[in-house]
Amino acid sequence: MVTGTVVLSSLAIALAIGLVLCSRYMAQSEDSVVDEVERILPRIQCAQCGYPGCRPYAAAIVAESAPLNLCPPGGEDTVRRLARFLGRDAAHLASPAAVAGVAAVPASLDDIAVIDEDLCIGCNLCVRACPVDAIVGVHQMMHTVITDHCTGCALCLPPCPVDCISLTPRHA
């Protein structure tokens, strides 16, 4: 009986030492997976998934602390591709309302923000809110949106005090 326990414990300890040695010298590289997941997301930085950008959401997905279906602009297609890539089940897209802190207007690459120039008071709040610096304008002067850079993330709509920004289809 005694020899049995001695044999087992020594065996276990020997193997444990081997594993510790192996884990010491191998380098850890994690972010290549986050890159891959981020590339699948639409990356319009709309923060409607509750994370401040697409990369934080991708990191949350890889760390398995966020479900795959929080991205409204990505739609069902992105959920399916994420599930396919990570080998997980594809749940249906969470309705935007269910996602914390979301703008009422769903973000989409097919739309762009348009500033009604004669209402704009130049308060510069939208410039700070825009994740991709697509709005230009000097303090107290009229601002406007650069159509090529705007991703339709609708983040500039809530902060505008005079509500002069609207989301319109890109190819009107």
Binding site: M26, Q28, E30, S32, V33, V62, L86, G87, R88
Partner: peptide
């Protein structure tokens, strides 16, 4: 260590 992508996919 060597194949993080595969490690994440197999999970």
């Amino acid at each position: 260590r060597a194949f993080p992508l595969l490690h994440k996919v197999l999970g």
